[in-house]
């Protein structure tokens, strides 16, 4: 745990934090709103005090009630991984700015997240499906997409592994069974 990183983050990003900074093991976690993403990332990348130049991961998360995008960054200035959780996107129409201006390599990571969750990255110039076929209509990693062998936990008839037409603009009619807080 890097206590000084927490102090620096609090000093520099106080206006943008949407929740307390948490530290556990070798990770520091901040929460922001999707609208602040570009400003926060630019600060973390360009500020010589932070110098987070390496993007380790970009993950979409469907909490069951909202959508998140989670970023992991690495910097030589700290011993911690930095986790940035952009939270609170509505499941019906999740939108977040694209990071491709800062890290062009995020393009495919965002394409993957779009493919799996239907999260729209505004500014990504190649937001196509990457794994699923182009005419596929649903988003497999959403929590309302069930696998056939998921039936152990589902009431009868809950298991349908064929795709459901959940375009990001259409509200899903079935509520996910599993949710997680934040």
């Amino acid at each position: 745990m890097d206590r000084s990183l927490k102090a620096r983050l609090e000093a520099r990003l106080a206006d943008h934090l949407a929740g307390p900074i948490r530290q556990r093991h070798d990770q520091t976690e901040i929460r922001i709103r999707p609208a602040d993403l570009l400003e926060v990332m630019r600060t973390l990348h360009d500020d010589p005090d932070f110098d987070f130049t390496i993007i380790a991961d970009l993950a979409g998360v469907d909490t069951g009630t909202t959508m998140q995008v989670v970023y992991h960054l690495w910097s030589a200035k700290t011993t911690d991984w930095l986790r940035i959780i952009a939270e609170g996107m509505p499941r019906e129409d999740p939108r977040i700015p694209s990071l491709t201006g800062l890290w062009p390599g995020a393009e495919w990571m965002e394409r993957e997240t779009y493919d799996m969750f239907g999260i729209i990255f505004e500014g990504n110039r190649d937001l196509r499906r990457i794994y699923m076929p182009p005419d596929y209509a649903s988003f497999p990693l959403r929590k309302d997409f069930y696998l056939p062998d998921d039936s152990a936990r589902s009431p009868g008839g809950g298991a349908r592994h064929v795709e459901q037409p959940n375009a990001p603009v259409v509200t899903s009619t079935r509520a996910p069974r599993r949710t997680v807080r934040g």
């Binding site: 076929p133 182009p134 005419d135 596929y136 209509a137 064929v162 795709e163």
Partner: peptide, 10 residues
């Protein structure tokens, strides 16, 4: 069940 790349594949 539109599944695999077919006539829709450009």
């Amino acid at each position: 069940l539109g599944h695999h790349a077919s006539e829709d594949d450009p």
